[in-house]
C-alpha cells in the first residue's frame, strides 16, 4: 500500500468567537449584557472568544500535540481544521489550499468512536474510504486496515459487541482509510482506561511509522503529549465567559515546545518528567515539585 502524502498545515491569525446566546439565563444576565454593551459602544453584540491570534505551522509528517485547560479552544481548533467550523478571522491552510469545509485530505478521529451501530466493524471502516474507491479494492483496503489495528477477527461484529478500546481502534482505522494528508485526533484516547490508553498510544506510533502522515493531536494528558509528539503547543483560555473586550484578548498560543529525543521515547525519561512538571504548572496544576525550575513558563 502506498504511503499517504503528508501535508503541511499553516494557521495564520485565526480567531473564533461565538455570539453569546440571547435567550440564556434570566434577567440578571440580560442586565449585565446591556451594561457591557454600553462599555463597548452600544452596538457590538456580546461574544465569547474561544481562540485568538493563533499562528502555527506544522511540517508534513510531524506529530503536534495541542494541550491546554478545558474550554481553551483545543477542540475548536481541530474542528476548524477539519472544516466542521469556520473561523471568525484568519485562514487555515492544508497543503496550499484554504480549508473551506470537510474535505478528503483530512480525517478526524473523535473522542468518542462514533461508529454507526447498524454497520459491522468492517462496514464502519469502509465508510472512511474515499468516494470512488473501486469496489474490488474496497474489501482489500478494509482488510489491510483492520489488520493494521489488529481487528481482523472482529470484522463482522457490530460496535455494540466490541470493547471501548476496540471501538476506538475501529475509529482510527476508519480515519486512516481516507489516506489523510492530515490526521486530526480530538482526545482520541481520553475515554479509555489507563492501560488501554498506553496501548493505543503505541498503536498510533506504530501506524504513524508505517504510514507517516501529519498528525494534530488534541489531548488533556500532558504525559501523552510529551510521549507522542514532536512538538507540544500549549493553549490558554482567552476569555473566561466574562466577555472581556476584544482589545484585552491575548494570543491563544502560550507556548510551543520542542520535545527532545526521538520516538519511541523512554516513558521514564527524566527530561520528559521535568518538562511534564513544567507544562502542568503552566496549566495551573500544583505539582509539589521541589527541584530546579518550578517557575511557570514565560509567555511568548
Amino acid at each position: 500500500m502506498s504511503a499517504a502524502t503528508a501535508l503541511p498545515v499553516t494557521i495564520t491569525g485565526v480567531r473564533r468567537a461565538f455570539p453569546v446566546p440571547a435567550s440564556r439565563g434570566g434577567r440578571a444576565d440580560r442586565a449585565s449584557r446591556s451594561v457591557r454593551r454600553g462599555t463597548t459602544g452600544g452596538t457590538v453584540p456580546a461574544e465569547r472568544i474561544v481562540l485568538d491570534q493563533v499562528d502555527l505551522t506544522v511540517e508534513p509528517g510531524e506529530i503536534v500535540a495541542v494541550i491546554g485547560p478545558s474550554g481553551c479552544g483545543k477542540s475548536t481548533l481541530l474542528r476548524l481544521l477539519g472544516g466542521l467550523d469556520t473561523p471568525s478571522a484568519g485562514t487555515l491552510r492544508i497543503g496550499d489550499q484554504i480549508v473551506t469545509g470537510t474535505d478528503t485530505r483530512t480525517a478526524i478521529g473523535f473522542q468518542e468512536p462514533r461508529l454507526l451501530p447498524w454497520r459491522t466493524v468492517a462496514q464502519n471502516v469502509a465508510l472512511g474510504l474515499p468516494r470512488g474507491t473501486p469496489r474490488s479494492e474496497r474489501a482489500t483496503r478494509v482488510a489491510e486496515l483492520l489488520e493494521l489495528v489488529g481487528l481482523t477477527a472482529s470484522a463482522d461484529l457490530r460496535p455494540r459487541q466490541i470493547s471501548g478500546g476496540m471501538a476506538q481502534r475501529v475509529s482510527l482505522a476508519r480515519a486512516l482509510a481516507r489516506r489523510p494528508g492530515v490526521l486530526l485526533l480530538d482526545e482520541p484516547f481520553g475515554a479509555l482506561d489507563a492501560l488501554t490508553r498506553l496501548r493505543m498510544q503505541e498503536e498510533l506510533l506504530r501506524v504513524h511509522a508505517a504510514r507517516p502522515t501529519t498528525v494534530l493531536l488534541v489531548t488533556h494528558d500532558v504525559e501523552e503529549a510529551l510521549y507522542l509528539a514532536d512538538r507540544v503547543v500549549a493553549l490558554r483560555t482567552v476569555s473566561d465567559g466574562e466577555h472581556s473586550p476584544v482589545s484585552d484578548v491575548a494570543p491563544s498560543v502560550v507556548r510551543v515546545l520542542d520535545v527532545p529525543g526521538a520516538r519511541p521515547r523512554d516513558r521514564a525519561d527524566a527530561r520528559l518528567a521535568e518538562l511534564r512538571v513544567e507544562l502542568l504548572e503552566g496549566l495551573g496544576v500544583v505539582t509539589h515539585h521541589v527541584s530546579g525550575a518550578s517557575e511557570p513558563y514565560p509567555a511568548i
Binding site: 470537510t102 468518542e112 462514533r114 465508510l127 474515499p130 476508519r174
Partner: peptide, 11 residues
C-alpha cells in the same frame, strides 16, 4: 448529532 457529524466528516 455526533453520528451525523461523523457522516459529514466522511463525505
Amino acid at each position: 448529532p455526533h453520528l451525523v457529524e461523523a457522516g459529514r466528516v466522511y463525505g
